[in-house]
Simulated assay, not measured.
Amino acid sequence: MINVKAGSVTFQNVRKTFGAFTAIHDLSLTIEPGTLVTLLGPSGCGKTTTLRMLAGLEHPTSGKILIGGKDVTMLPANERDVSMVFQSYALFPHMTSLENVAYGLQSSGLAKKEAREKAEEGLKLVGLAGMGHRLPAELSGGQQQRVAVARALVLEPQVLLLDEPLSNLDARLRRRVRTEIRDLQQRLGFTAVYVTHDQDEALAVSDRIIVMKDGEIAQSGAPRELYEAPASPFIADFMGEANVLPCEVIQSDAGEVLVRVSNLEHRLQSKAAQGPAKLAVRPGAIRIGAPHAAGLRGRVLHSAYLGGHVEYEVETDVGTLFVIDHDVDHAHAAASDVTLAFKNRGIAVISG
Rank of each mutant, 00 (worst) to 15 (best):
S62G: 13
I210F: 09
A148Y: 07
S62F: 06
V338G: 13
R146F: 07
G141D: 11
L139R: 02
L296F: 08
V85W: 01
H309Q: 07
L340F: 07
V193C: 10
I2K: 06
D329W: 07
G352L: 05
F190S: 11
N168K: 01
I24F: 08
A6V: 02
I250L: 01
T10M: 11
T196I: 12
A293Y: 14
A272E: 11
V154D: 13
R116I: 14
A304N: 07
M1L: 12
Y312C: 08
G221E: 13
L245P: 11
Q219A: 10
A334P: 13
H309T: 02
E180F: 07
L203G: 09
P165M: 01
V82K: 03
P230L: 09
A137L: 10
L29D: 05
A285Q: 06
S220A: 14
A171G: 06
T191S: 13
A341D: 14
I347P: 08
V349T: 06
G46H: 00
L91Q: 02
P33D: 01
T22A: 05
E32Y: 10
E216S: 14
Q143T: 04
R80T: 02
P60G: 09
A102S: 03
L105E: 00
E311G: 04
G109S: 07
R287L: 14
M212C: 12
D327N: 12
L258S: 11
Y227Q: 05
A102H: 00
E313W: 11
K124E: 15
F342P: 04
H292F: 14
K213H: 15
N3D: 08
L173N: 01
L296C: 07
M1N: 06
D200E: 15
A148G: 04
K278H: 15
E228F: 13
E138N: 11
K278A: 14
L306M: 13
R172C: 02
I250H: 04
E32P: 08
K278D: 10
C45W: 03
E117L: 12
S108N: 08
M131A: 05
S8H: 03
H330N: 15
A20G: 01
A242P: 03
F18M: 00
A115D: 05
A148L: 10
S303T: 13
A236S: 07
R287D: 15
H292D: 15
K47W: 05
A102N: 02
K64D: 10
R176D: 15
S140Y: 02
I181W: 04
Q12F: 03
L98F: 04
L340N: 07
L139G: 01
P276W: 06
F92A: 00
L40D: 13
V318T: 02
L105Y: 06
L306I: 07
E315H: 01
A231F: 10
Q12P: 01
E114H: 10
T316C: 09
P76K: 04
S140T: 08
M95K: 02
D71Y: 00
T96C: 00
D317M: 10
E248T: 01
V249W: 09
M1H: 11
A341L: 09
L139F: 06
K343A: 15
T17W: 03
I181G: 03
E99W: 01
E228Y: 13
G68A: 08
F190T: 15
I250D: 01
H94M: 02
P230M: 05
H266D: 09
D71C: 02
D200N: 14
N243W: 11
I350N: 08
T50Q: 03
S167V: 05
L340R: 13
Q274T: 14
E99K: 09
I31G: 06
D337K: 09
L27I: 00
M84G: 00
